[in-house]
Design a protein around this nucleic acid. Structure first.
Lengths: 237, 237
DNA sequence: CAGGTTTCGTCAGAATCCGTACACAGGCTC
DNA sequence: GAGCCTGTGTACGGATTCTGACGAAACCTG
């Protein structure tokens, strides 16, 4: 069996684990590519695997009683997918879908639960990330109620850029409209406004960020809280 | 020391604990009244105590980088306040404030952390409630982006009624406006619409619910998901 | 390269909600 | 009971976003 070495793993939670705790996990981790539009789990269906992305971005979309959906958060190599495994809830009314191609390490539910009970460092890491992620969800709720489309778009682009190494992503307006819970042409208008100001550049189904600082200015208070919580709780050496 | 008996405690999480697990906690629990407007913790300040309400309602209000706030959830005798204690995050960018008078059991941070490490049943209970609460937050994000004032008001009234024994609550439009993240007169208009249909009755600073089923109809898909998750994960005998 | 599909730009009209403002009513205090 | 504060009803103009729709541009497939 090809064992995975911590030093080559590019998921930040795994990288920061004490070596012994990582090694106990390693044999259960399975490396795999994740492609855009792949669904990691469906709403209210058992979550069988957790994923620790090492590249790419996943989107978490909550669904209500009538099937209306809205994105509550994004996760990249700074976190993991599979919170219901850690919280012993089995499933959750949200869909997780890959947004930007990448890869990650997968682990089966039972293996992760066994490991986290044995490793306080792992459990604490996972719980702290759950805190950060739920802050992101709260901030999304605030943004959805108090901010305009262009402000939310700016926030969203910033969060995406934080999770990729490149300056651009492949992504349609249609898709963004679902993420921001607005209509498609509202996204088009906001994008044109940003492009007109020279803040982003767009081609068909592709966006690249030119002036990050201007995006931060536009996003205003909608951006930053989650990032601060992450740095506070999951500090890098 | 007056010890608290599980059979008289009216917090549902505590009631459902195995007797031995409750008894281990009991001596650290302190009974106290909570009054409307009392702040249980401020954003980004250390959370020193957890509260298990036995009556009354608390409101959790997230705050963003510019101090803009919006309610993300309500908690009553079905849950607890103090998630940062369980997730080892110390603090969180949210204010928790008492909305409706009541009382609860308070426990110091260190005592709860020690207890939950010793008691898997307690830890599991707390984690499952955290899941349910974060579902509530997600559903709030969905509601804020896709639903009108009157729909969100209906959802909110239903959630409040679920957490009280009475049919009415004392509460101003001003306060509701902050909770729903809309302007005060928007609440007045929505309330008048509901009262015109005979669904609620209002007097100065007081609302009582007359036709609950009509509220559910108006709230539509915005209401129900969290409640279903609660029943699934924290089942009553 | 012809034809189909996906993605994007735009527009008219309507609905919702906002900012702001003002007047009135209920309840409290002196 | 007079005066004050808080809470509620209402109104207007304006901003934002939506519904729904249409056509153009970019890309893909055969």
């Amino acid at each position: 069996m090809l064992s995975i070495s911590q030093s080559t793993v590019e998921n930040q939670l795994l990288t920061l684990l004490p070596k012994a705790d990582f090694d106990a996990l390693a044999s259960d981790l399975e490396l795999l590519d994740i492609h855009a539009k792949k669904i990691l789990h469906e709403p209210n269906e058992p979550v069988e695997h957790a994923y620790f992305p090492t590249a790419g971005i996943c989107s978490v979309n909550a669904e209500n009683a009538k099937g209306v959906r809205s994105e509550t958060g994004v996760v990249g190599d700074e976190g993991f997918i599979g919170i219901p495994i850690v919280l012993f809830s089995g499933s959750t009314p949200a869909q997780v879908v890959v947004q930007v191609d990448g890869c990650g390490l997968r682990i089966a539910k039972d293996s992760l639960q066994a490991a986290m009970i044995k490793s306080p460092a792992l459990l604490s890491m996972l719980l702290r990330f759950i805190h950060v992620f739920s802050v992101q969800t709260s901030q999304t709720a605030v943004a959805n109620s108090h901010y305009t489309i262009i402000e939310r778009l700016a926030r969203w682009l910033l969060m995406c850029q934080d999770r990729t190494t490149s300056h651009g992503f492949t992504m349609t307006h249609e898709f963004l409209a679902v993420m921001l819970a607005v209509r498609r042409s509202g996204v088009t208008e906001a994008m044109n406004e940003l492009e007109g100001q020279g803040i982003i550049r767009t081609t068909r189904a592709h966006i690249s960020i030119v002036k990050r600082s201007m995006l931060q200015e536009i996003a205003g208070g909608a951006y930053g809280v989650q990032e601060q919580e992450y740095r506070r709780l999951i500090p890098h050496v």
